[in-house]
Structure formats: structure tokens, C-alpha cells
């Protein structure tokens, strides 16, 4: 019977394959009609503009100008000579170097302490996470007034209560950037804590038992032998995420210092904002954006490479 069927249909084999191609075309069209709008918007609003930023950075265009010409690396050459760029770049690095370690360490400490006991876990987690949901801009004003205010701020009130010298924290070039950093740390600790808590949950309890049998039963030994190595990938991950977030510091600068005093808090994104949207120097702003993008990409790449190398922990 099977042979019969074969013979009957052999003659129509070519029309069958044409029909199959028809269905393939129809299904491809369906898939693209589902994905197409998103793909188009992705190019229009994200990938296209990102590519445009790179292209613009090689031109001399200013917003509203009728003409533009290629100047090659001209913007980048200007950047290297630009004292303001050097300052803002350095400030950004200082800001990251200050906030990232503290925010990660405090997040780790909070996670370890929360996980080391059973009572109050949910409460502490909630409270530490609260700043993550806060709108940063108004909170910046809270810090400005309640903490850093030269006379009624808590910090100076406390200092003077102990007879210590006080400062105008946000107007002092030595402390303004760090003051902004404190706000950044306050907001990001909770997120890091939750990420570390998730990492801690992933450590099999057997490992602690095994370590205890091997003689590592003190808190420090447990941390050194089991927790810390097992948290390796999570830590790298948290470090990168925090670094990228710190790199994007902007809201607090605009709200509290406007880059001042004397450019002490002028950071990369703030300079980019000013060049691009206040001075309308689109090309130069694009070049600054490229630097910013490059840093984020390098950080991400670094994390991917390092995590790959450390996969034996996972």
C-alpha cells in the first residue's frame, strides 16, 4: 500500500515543494510582522542614534547649523587639550573610585549580616532597599538641606556639638564631589545588598557542612573558605553594575552643584549635557558621549572576560 501511495504522489513532487516554499514565505512574513515593528524602533531610537553619535563625533556640526564637515579626530584632539574635559573625566573617575567600593562593601556587609541571623530579615531588607525606589532628584535636596547645610545640617550640627571644625560641604571644592558620592552610595547600597543576598542563597549549605568537617567552622574561616570564593562571580557582577551606575552620575550634580564649585563636581555626563544641550555643540557632545560609551563597554567586557575565567567557582 505504501508503494502505491509513493507512486501516486511522485508526479506531484515538484508542485509539493512549491507549496512548501509558499508556507515558508508565509511563516517568515508572520515572524517579521511580529518582530519588525520592534526591530524598526530599536534602530530608530537606539542603535541608529548610537551609530549617529559615533559619526557626529567626527564632524564639526553644531545644533541648527546648515552645514557640517568632517574633521576626523578633531573633536577628540580638542578633548585631549580641553582642561575642562580632563577635570570632568578625573572627577568622574574619583566619584566612581569613591562610591563603588563603599557601596559594594556596605551592600555585602548588609547582606552577610542579614543572612547570618534569622530575625528581622524581611524588615532590614525592606529598609535597606527603600532608597532604590526613591526619586533621586528631590532626595538630593533633602541631603543638601538636612545633611550638608552649613548651619542647620545634621553633619555640621553634630560636628560643632563636639567642638569640631565645620565646613560648607557642597561649596567646598575638596568635599563637594564626595558629598554627592554619599548620596550615590545611599541610593545604591540596597540594590547591591539584594544582589548579594541572591548570591548567598545560591551557595549550597552542604559546602558549609563540608568545610566544618574539614575544620573550617569559625565565622571568618567559613567566609574565607566558602562564602567569598562562591560569591566571586556575583561580586564581579555587582562591581560592574555599580561602576556603570556611578559613571552615570548626573541628577545630584544638576540639582546641587551645577558642576561647581569651580568645576569640582563637573562630571562626564554633566559636561556632555552642557556641551550638547546648553552650548548646542552637538558634535563635541557626541565625542564626549563616545568616551562615556567606551567606558561602559570596556567595563562590561571586563566583567564578561573575568566571569568567564572564574567560572570554576560557579
Amino acid at each position: 500500500m505504501a508503494e502505491l501511495a509513493t507512486a501516486r504522489h511522485r508526479s506531484s513532487a515538484s508542485s509539493a515543494s512549491r507549496r512548501l516554499i509558499g508556507r515558508w514565505v508565509a511563516e517568515t512574513a508572520t515572524a517579521w510582522s511580529l518582530a519588525g515593528p520592534a526591530v524598526a524602533l530599536m534602530w530608530l531610537l537606539l542603535l541608529g542614534p548610537a551609530a549617529a553619535v559615533v559619526l557626529l563625533s567626527f564632524t564639526d556640526w553644531s545644533f541648527g547649523q546648515p552645514t557640517m564637515s568632517w574633521i576626523g579626530l578633531g573633536n577628540f584632539r580638542e578633548m585631549v587639550a580641553d582642561q575642562l574635559f580632563r577635570t570632568s573625566f578625573l572627577n568622574t573617575l574619583v566619584y566612581v573610585a569613591f562610591t563603588m567600593p563603599l557601596s559594594v562593601l556596605l551592600g555585602l556587609g548588609a547582606a552577610l549580616l542579614i543572612e547570618s541571623g534569622t530575625s528581622g530579615r524581611g524588615f532590614y531588607r525592606t529598609v535597606f532597599f527603600l532608597p532604590v525606589t526613591a526619586t533621586l532628584l528631590p532626595m538630593a535636596f533633602v541631603f543638601q538641606f538636612a545633611y550638608f547645610h552649613p548651619t542647620v545640617g545634621i553633619i555640621n550640627q553634630t560636628l560643632s556639638a563636639f567642638g569640631l571644625p565645620t565646613r560648607d560641604w557642597l561649596r567646598d571644592p575638596d568635599t563637594a564631589l564626595l558629598a554627592l558620592g554619599v548620596i550615590g552610595i545611599w541610593q545604591s547600597v540596597g540594590l547591591n545588598m539584594v544582589l548579594f543576598l541572591a548570591g548567598l542563597k545560591g551557595i549550597p549549605k552542604d559546602l558549609y557542612d563540608a568545610a566544618a568537617l574539614d575544620g573550617a567552622d569559625g565565622a571568618w574561616e567559613r567566609f574565607r573558605r566558602v562564602t567569598w570564593p562562591m560569591l566571586g562571580p556575583a561580586t564581579l557582577f555587582v562591581l560592574t553594575v555599580t561602576a556603570i551606575k556611578s559613571f552615570q552620575v548626573f541628577d545630584t550634580v544638576i540639582a546641587l552643584t551645577q558642576g561647581g564649585p569651580g568645576n569640582a563636581t563637573n562630571v562626564l555626563l554633566f559636561q556632555m549635557y552642557q556641551e550638547g544641550f546648553s552650548f548646542l555643540r552637538s558634535a563635541y557632545a557626541s565625542a564626549l558621549t563616545c568616551v562615556f560609551l567606551l567606558f561602559v563597554l570596556v567595563l562590561t567586557l571586563l566583567q564578561v572576560v573575568l566571569v568567564d575565567r572564574k567560572t570554576h567557582y560557579g
Partner: peptide
């Protein structure tokens, strides 16, 4: 990052 496409 979301700030990158801002200018274009």
C-alpha cells in the same frame, strides 16, 4: 546606556 542616543 540610555544617555548615549540623547543627542541624535
Amino acid at each position: 546606556p540610555p544617555q548615549v542616543p540623547a543627542v541624535p
